[in-house]
Design a protein around this nucleic acid. Sequence first.
DNA 1: TTGATTTGTTAGTCATAACTAACTTTTTTA
DNA 2: TAAAAAAGTTAGTTATGACTAACAAATCAA
Lengths: 228, 228
Amino acid sequence: MTNKSNLNNLTKSEEDYLKALFQLLAEDHTVKVGNNQLAEYLKVSPASTNNMIKKLKAKHYVVSEKYGKLELTAEGQSIAVRLIRKHRLWETFLYNYLNFSWDEVHDVAEQLEHIKSYKLIDELDRFMDFPEKDPHGELIPNAKGEYKVIPKITLSSLEEGDVCRLIAVNDGSVNFLRFVSEIGLALSSKIKILEIREFDKSIRIQFDGTIETVTKKFADNVFVKKVI
Amino acid sequence: MTNKSNLNNLTKSEEDYLKALFQLLAEDHTVKVGNNQLAEYLKVSPASTNNMIKKLKAKHYVVSEKYGKLELTAEGQSIAVRLIRKHRLWETFLYNYLNFSWDEVHDVAEQLEHIKSYKLIDELDRFMDFPEKDPHGELIPNAKGEYKVIPKITLSSLEEGDVCRLIAVNDGSVNFLRFVSEIGLALSSKIKILEIREFDKSIRIQFDGTIETVTKKFADNVFVKKVI
DNA sequence: TTGATTTGTTAGTCATAACTAACTTTTTTA
DNA sequence: TAAAAAAGTTAGTTATGACTAACAAATCAA
């Protein structure tokens, strides 16, 4: 290898676990993140998770007591943030330069984020003139590893009559992203809550003249900023 | 996964072996390529090679008789050519857009060539406006998998007084590439053979007003086209 | 042509990272 | 608070792809 600093000696799997744990912890840092939760998130067995957590503890990326909650060390966080940076920069590249659609970028970025080369990612960043957000509206951590989160709330948390702007979407599911595009929603769309149906919490929304009814599950994955 | 056709179900290792075998066969298709030769090329043990060859034979990518020479099936060749296409396109991207130098591109391209997505590589090709050659002067196979080889000879095969043009270099060694750049040689440089020293086959060459003495080993890795 | 050398193969081991099944600890709830 | 449920752990298995050591076949050379 050309440059020792390009090697952090982590396998693809180790990286996946660190990133997943970071994202679970970031979702809601008030509640405990446990072994089984991480297993479910990564779609592996609890035994696999347990095993990997042991290894990551030995390498000082994860801290936890037996039967206790999982936490990341500063070093573990730093690796996770770097992966998120890589993921979002690649998504941006695919979307802005290679004609990938909203729902196509995630899977390929999931592979590209494991390529080991600091120069590659920093030059890609420079080439795109240091983009701030990825195609899903999420902020891209900078080369120093500064991770910011846009203050955002879910569409499902609003009330009738509220007006908001779509600022980001959860990029976990291809089908969801495809549906978002299909009905005509995009980043920055202005959305008005017309009605929330009590019995199933489905929501009638209006945007760009269109009126749609969406489920609670859908609204949970759409992040907005209130306008009035 | 989004697209079934993005999956060819080959592991990184399987791909590495197919590509290596293809390149050994391409070097000189008159001589037999054997198990140990492949092992040495890949810097793994003969036992590992033997094992993998068995697997690749079962999958119909490789054909060989026991103790016999190794050959690729059409399918095996097609996979290898696609890897070479990906490798060379990524090298070109790194060199032309991300400020990578001649000697830095190889290692990163070696990782990038295993990313599985037809769309990614075809869009990258389009983005760069379908380049013909990579930074080392090698032809890039097209999306149909057409693999062409530039008729080329090594610098070491010339005679005193010959004049040639540098058309490609072997990209296997970082140190070699770095040295090529250092002495000031580049693609298209016009080189004159001043003298070949009998006792060690070292060669005095002249290019761009510079005079250098290079070893036989060096000259074996420099590919040229005779001018007169 | 026969013995030495090279080349190829087989058997068995190791690490990684997944799995299931069984078990233990913790938490919940009746 | 004790039983049930959930969460976490351990043990043992599997597949991949390396390895070494030992052995067999093919080729070279005296």
